[in-house]
């Protein structure tokens, strides 16, 4: 394949990575932005989404499409419920103290990982894509499902942006993010907002997990890479910045796609991590973050 089509393929792969990463990282960024909680267990919500997608879709083996659609709804809801439970039982009791919640979410990471290992096993299991078609370009054919993933992730990102910027719930979330104490003085039940944000962040990660599982297979350790890439993304974009998270996801996702196709995935990770180091040295609050973040 000549350079042009090769680059086009790399950009397509990078775009899929970018959209899925944007969805995952947005959840992490929201949780930190509003709650000031660094959720180390965020990748496990991604993994849980994928594993539950396998469990739900295997309930209807005769109809993969129906099973997947059901998983796309049920899995994020179930993961959101797990996040709500974790918030009520652990984070709230720690009064959302930044240091304590880091340790607590590390614990949550291991609990979720080991529960999945115990009940699901160490296997990598495939989930059949709900649709199976190829888009034929002049130089190569490309998975139609991957284009569906791009469209679905874009739609979800737009919906999340609409929720945050155009609805009363979003306004309450943003007010809580800017000043927790004053928000309470204006009748905003901050702890309930925190619960909602933590569940929303987990559901975004879980949805990304469901969308990716027909491409990657479900495995109990699959949460590590999304966690690392999400942290890289939100640090580069600026913790808590919606716009920064999206821009950084595209920079990281597309560069990851291009470098992986032309060189190696390892080099892509090395360069992304180097970029984080440079951002931390020269612009510690991220490309779009404010100084307080």
């Amino acid at each position: 394949m000549s350079f042009g089509p090769h680059l086009f393929l790399a950009l397509l792969e990078g775009t899929v990575t970018a959209f899925v990463l944007a969805l995952t990282a947005l959840g992490l960024s929201l949780v930190f932005g509003v709650m000031r909680v660094v959720n180390v267990a965020h990748g496990e919500f991604f993994m849980l989404g994928a594993v539950l997608a396998w469990a739900v879709s295997s309930l209807i083996p005769a109809s993969p499409a129906l099973g997947f659609l059901l998983a796309l709804i049920a899995s994020p809801l179930a993961v959101g419920a797990v996040a709500l439970l974790a918030d009520r039982l652990v984070l709230r009791r720690l009064n959302y103290a930044p240091e304590a919640t880091i340790v607590a979410t590390i614990g949550l990471l291991y609990i979720l990982q080991q529960l999945v290992l115990t009940f699901y096993g160490p296997y990598a299991r495939p989930v059949t894509a709900p649709i199976s078609f190829r888009v034929q370009f002049p130089w190569f054919g490309y998975s139609g499902y991957k284009l569906v993933v791009i469209a679905a992730a874009a739609a979800l990102l737009a919906a999340t942006w609409y929720l945050l910027m155009r609805t009363r719930i979003g306004l309450v979330m943003r007010a809580t993010q800017y000043d927790r104490e004053t928000a309470q003085a204006f009748g905003i039940p901050v702890e309930r907002v925190y619960s909602g944000i933590f569940a929303l962040g987990a559901m975004l990660a879980a949805t990304a997990g469901v969308l990716i599982v027909p491409i990657q297979q479900a495995h109990y350790l699959m949460g590590l890479d999304p966690l690392l890439l999400s942290f890289i993304t939100v640090i580069i974009g600026g913790l808590g910045s919606l716009r920064g998270t999206l821009v950084a996801a595209f920079v990281i996702g597309i560069s990851d796609g291009v470098i992986s196709v032309f060189f190696s995935p390892t080099l892509a990770k090395i360069i992304a991590t180097l970029f984080v180091a440079l951002v931390l040295v020269f612009r510690p609050s991220g490309l779009f973050g404010s100084a307080r973040a």
Binding site: R168, L171, V172, R174, A175, Y178, D179, E181, T182, A183, F186, G187, I188
Partner: peptide, 19 residues
């Protein structure tokens, strides 16, 4: 202690919400 990154209108809307 305004919500400094929200607009004037949005600050007023927060005030209207509680009651």
């Amino acid at each position: 202690r305004l919500f400094a990154e929200l607009t004037v209108e949005e600050n007023l809307t927060i005030g209207l919400m509680a009651r």
